[in-house]
């Protein structure tokens, strides 16, 4: 009962957050210097054409009125026309978002599985060479930006040891699968084309690795520290004292309480994978939404900027709710509000 109310509360709160975000985004997009009409139509456009463009896009109205026009469209799923591509922004997002999601989802998967696995391993072999190695990697992960790692990985797999493709979404000569979700790996699986799936998967591998590595090693450290800290707890000694086998104590009674700090941190990291994806997309020639959004900013494409950031915002908030729910599941003290 309490749990349902907790989730409802988070959902209502997130609607307010997204509404606030829409106002901020709308204003910021219009504060960036540059005349959107001039940027869209080019240096040779006539005054008449510019005026016409402004009139069409309600750019002559005061900001609040402009906002009402825009948010009205957004609520109907219409983000307006992109001046870059001359297509509806919603269509552009539908095209570019799946490509990014494909990488981000795999990166998130690596992040979660990798950090728990490595963290547990390091905790089990505390103060060994392996533990030290993971420690070094975690410091390196904090210190090294994702794009440096991306370039290093590219060098490794593109030049030194070319076993995994490092550019684009598919190899030359392989046709893209029929578009169902827009994610090549999923679409090829759905249409039963395993060759394409494998190829698409390999292409996703290195970008995803470059994207998640920093967070993964950091969270592995968090899991490791929580585990070593909890290892001395009386409740584990008690379980051992009652004859419960060590394997069960480790994988159940030690792991669950030790995941709580790492999961909160993972949530933030996974949510920011979306925006961090930009440099990765540029480096790996990945036609994703971050790249689209960044190009939109350079071109002062108001609708594209607002649309992309709204999508990021909604995903960010959504992931945070999900993480809150997972943390509440893991920790009854949060779920039950500490009371009776």
């Amino acid at each position: 009962m309490n749990f349902k109310r907790f989730i409802l509360h988070r959902l209502l709160l997130s609607i307010i957050v997204i509404f606030g975000l829409s106002i901020v985004i709308f204003c910021i997009a219009r504060i960036i210097p540059g005349d959107p009409a001039r940027m869209a139509l080019g240096a040779t456009a006539t005054d008449y054409a510019l005026e016409n463009f402004r009139e069409e896009n309600h750019l002559n109205e005061v900001l609040p009125v402009q906002y009402v026009y825009w948010i009205g469209g957004v609520l109907r799923g219409d983000f307006g026309i992109s001046t870059m591509t001359s297509r509806p922004v919603s269509g552009d997002i539908m095209e570019f978002l799946p490509a990014t999601l494909e990488v981000v989802v795999l990166a998130a998967l690596f992040l979660v599985v990798g950090s728990i696995f490595l963290g547990t391993l390091a905790a089990k072999h505390r103060d060994s060479v392996l533990d030290g190695l993971i420690r070094v990697f975690s410091y390196a992960g904090v210190a090294m930006p994702g794009f440096v790692l991306a370039i290093l990985l590219m060098l490794l797999f593109g030049y030194v040891w070319p076993v995994i493709p490092v550019l684009g979404r598919l190899s030359h000569g392989i046709t893209s699968p029929p578009s169902i979700t827009g994610m090549y790996t999923v679409d090829s699986l759905l249409s039963g084309d395993f060759k394409t799936f494998w190829n698409a998967f390999l292409h996703t591998l290195v970008p995803a690795l470059a994207l998640c590595a920093g967070g993964m090693f950091q969270e592995a450290r968090l899991v490791r520290n929580a585990m070593t800290e909890n290892m001395g707890r009386d409740y584990l000694a008690a379980m051992k004292g009652y004859g419960v086998p060590n394997r069960l104590i480790m994988n159940k009674y030690l792991l669950k309480p030790s995941l709580i700090p790492a999961v909160s941190c993972m949530g933030m990291d996974i949510a920011s994978l979306m925006s961090n994806a930009f440099l990765i997309e540029v480096i790996f020639g990945w036609p994703g939404i971050s790249k689209y959004g960044m190009n939109g900013m350079l071109a002062k494409d108001l609708n594209a900027i607002s649309g992309v950031i709204m999508v990021f915002g909604i995903l960010f908030v959504g992931i945070n709710i999900l993480v809150d729910i997972i943390v509440a599941y893991l920790d009854p003290r949060i779920r039950l509000g500490g009371g009776k």
């Binding site: 009386d234 309480p257 009854p332 003290r333």
Partner: peptide
């Protein structure tokens, strides 16, 4: 069998 000194520490907080 043994009863531990601090009951809050001897029970795992995240399991029923």
């Amino acid at each position: 069998s043994m009863i531990y000194q601090e009951p809050s520490a001897a029970l795992n907080p995240v399991f029923t």
